[in-house]
Amino acid sequence: MKLKVGVFKFTSCSGCQVELIRMNEQLPELLNLVEFKYWAMASSKLEDGPYDLALVEGAISTPECIEEVKAIREKSRVLVALGDCAVTGGVPSIRNWMSQREAETIVYPKPGCIRSTRVYGIDEYVKVDYYLKGCPPRLENILEVFKAVILGVKPRLRQHPVCVECKFYENECLLTTYKQPCMGPVTAAGCGAICPNVGRVCEGCYGPMSDPNIASMVERLKEIGLSDDEILRKFRKYAGMSKLYREVAKL
């Protein structure tokens, strides 16, 4: 029996689904194990549930989305938040720090028809079994979830900081050696330290690691010269709505 999978999208850029499509040579192998019953980006043949596994991309930002995500939960045995937007609200959630009207006016020429709510990750409304962090999550992490759901075990998605992976690659330390504002020490790993690998600071896209020392991280960023406002934006950028960052992000 193949795993019946549905892929759904809410407020997001679709980049997480693109990461899934990018799988290329592994796709035939995956298709031996799973059957995509619903994946609008990949096929116009859309079948209703029940699903063994629902991958939900995107943040919840309208009243309609709330009802839809609840309906998906009803139909799905295992529900996975695919990517930051679904995990915490992600980049779209930065508009929570301005008035709704202001955000709508910036984006839409005629905001009158827009009905939106505060932006949340999907677990504000439904129970989430596993979280695929990242903007986007690395394919390896997504495949780990497929395998784990098939085997009936918890996926191995480690929550330790990016520094661990960064050291495995023996990158120069951007924070200590270059005094650059790298979010590695508080950010969950899984990305494979791809930004530090090319000499760029970790932007924190996997959101908080298991037990970030936020107060100390703020001090470190101050030490290297970041202003309070810059620090605020560092924490808000990808995961300001995460429970661990809400305080420092001044929600």
Partner: peptide
């Protein structure tokens, strides 16, 4: 420990 980030760098290097 108030300053420690638990980043693991000390032991990894």
């Amino acid at each position: 420990a108030e300053r420690c980030l638990s980043c693991g760098n000390c032991s990894l290097v």
